[in-house]
């Protein structure tokens, strides 16, 4: 059990779900709380994605219920692994309390945030585009 209290106390359990809307694009859906206990798993999954035949990643944080500096660190790692290119690595952030963590660290100015998954997908580079965005 990852979260010994998760189910018993009604808190959202941390989970990662992968979706492939296009062959070259990974959508990584994150659910639950991202903190020191779970951020490594998020970072590892992003690192693994960077070693696969994937051009671009959208990390969908719409169902994230909490994120701290460790979670932010994992997302920064992902951004770097995908070339720090906003057309290859984007985040979907819907909840105000999650967006606030990016804002108070000014990372909303570095990591590309979108309100919906469709908006994020629309801003990715076309397949095979390696122009540097």
């Amino acid at each position: 059990m990852r979260e010994p209290f998760g189910n018993a106390l009604g808190a959202a359990e941390f989970r990662l779900v992968e979706e492939r809307p296009r062959p070259e694009t990974l959508v990584l859906v994150v659910l639950g709380d991202v903190d020191l206990h779970t951020a490594d798993e998020l970072g590892s999954r992003l690192a693994a994605a960077s070693r696969r035949r994937i051009d671009s990643v959208v990390v969908d944080l719409s169902a994230v219920t909490f994120v701290d500096s460790q979670g932010i660190g994992a997302l920064l790692l992902g951004a770097r692994l995908f070339g720090s290119r906003p057309d290859r690595f984007r985040l979907v952030v819907r909840r105000p309390e999650i967006r606030r963590v990016f804002e108070i660290t000014s990372l909303d100015q570095i990591l590309p945030l979108d309100p919906t998954r469709d908006a994020a997908l629309a801003r990715l580079a076309p397949a095979g585009d390696d122009s540097g965005g």
């Binding site: 720090s84 660290t105 990372l107």
Partner: peptide
């Protein structure tokens, strides 16, 4: 809390 983090430096 300004961090001015650059992803390339992580």
């Amino acid at each position: 809390a300004r961090t001015d983090l650059d992803p390339s430096q992580v």
